[in-house]
């Protein structure tokens, strides 16, 4: 039983990471009706940006450490957000009128460019990078169940992010415009909503959340590597699809399910750890076969 609880905790952590990535996919899909496949690469790019910013800031001697960390995170998140909007400008905007799959292809290509770009241009970017930030090592144990400070922090941070996100979407004017656009693009345009602006803001928002996910990932697992975005992207995308593309809360559920499936596979299926992604994907394929609209997704009616 203790083992199961411990596994649930580790699965939950992985699940939150997936959920944060998947929320970005869902947010972008909801507004643009396209899949921005490079989203996970943007997330991990956020981790790399924060490493670069940190190296830069720690050269300034009179900064105390906590200030360095604070500014690192702020800058990294903003820079990643800007990178997200640049991607929108170059690789999504020109194809807004083309079939959605063209955007999928172009963003798959963007993903490759980001990954290979990190590999080639980041100093010795091909090898795994030790992430300089990490949570304090405090922990308390209760009958064999160990709960660490990092676990609690991740849950709290994720909670704050989702709280702010729902506040932004539901209470602000821009949030209202985003909701309107995601319901009906033409109608939104008729009502005078500046689509360019909405798309830009959505990309900025999704990329900042992604950057937080990337940084949390780095802090929790202590390592980032240029190619993590590939698997992260496919799993994040899967989680979003499982939850119902376009639904952020669905993405959270999808992410958590996949995280727990992976962690349980590693622990309880004998010799199963190399196959953990396979189990996750089998769950996804089953969902697509039997509930293609996802857990919280709307039923799509084919219009002729």
């Amino acid at each position: 039983m203790v083992l199961v609880i411990n596994q649930v905790i580790t699965g939950l952590m992985l699940g939150i990471m997936y959920a944060l990535i998947a929320s970005g996919f869902s947010l972008l899909f909801g507004v643009l009706n396209v899949v921005q496949f490079a989203h996970a690469d943007v997330c991990f790019l956020g981790a790399f940006v924060s490493m670069a910013v940190m190296t830069f800031l720690s050269k300034i001697e009179f900064f105390p450490t906590w200030l360095v960390i604070f500014f690192t995170i702020i800058f990294a998140v903003i820079i990643t957000g800007i990178i997200g909007t640049i991607i929108e400008k170059i690789c999504v905007k020109p194809f807004r009128k083309s079939p959605g799959l063209i955007i999928l292809l172009s963003t798959v290509a963007v993903g490759f460019i980001i990954r290979e770009g990190i590999k080639i241009f980041y100093p010795s970017g091909a090898s795994p990078k030790f992430f300089p930030l990490s949570f304090p090592q405090w922990a308390f144990s209760m009958g064999g169940v160990t709960i660490r400070f990092s676990n609690i922090m991740i849950i709290i941070i994720a909670g704050i992010i989702y709280f702010l996100l729902s506040l932004f979407i539901n209470k602000t004017k821009i949030g209202l415009q985003i909701r309107a656009t995601s319901q009906n693009v033409e109608a939104a345009q008729v009502l005078g909503i500046d689509l360019d602006k909405i798309f830009m803001i959505t990309f900025f928002l999704a990329s900042t959340i992604g950057a937080v996910a990337g940084i949390l990932n780095g802090m929790y697992y202590n390592i980032v590597k240029f190619d993590m975005g590939l698997m992260g992207g496919i799993i994040g995308f899967s989680a979003a699809v499982m939850g119902g593309l376009g639904n952020i809360y669905g993405a959270i559920i999808g992410g958590l399910i996949l995280g727990i499936v992976e962690s349980f596979t590693m622990a309880f299926v004998p010799g199963g750890s190399p196959y953990k992604e396979i189990f996750a994907f089998i769950v996804v394929v089953l969902f697509l076969l039997f509930k293609p609209s996802g857990i919280l997704g709307k039923k799509v009616i084919e219009k002729v």
């Binding site: 899949v35 959605g100 799959l101 999928l104 698997m231 496919i234 995308f237 899967s238 699809v241 593309l245 190399p274 196959y275 992604e277 396979i278 994907f281 996804v284 394929v285 697509l288 076969l289 293609p292």
Partner: peptide, 21 residues
């Protein structure tokens, strides 16, 4: 049953599954 993005996703998943297997 799956078209568009869903088809792309399933094939990606199959690609990864094949490689892992």
């Amino acid at each position: 049953k799956s078209t568009g993005f869903y088809y792309a996703l399933v094939t990606m998943a199959f690609q990864i599954i094949f490689h892992l297997l």
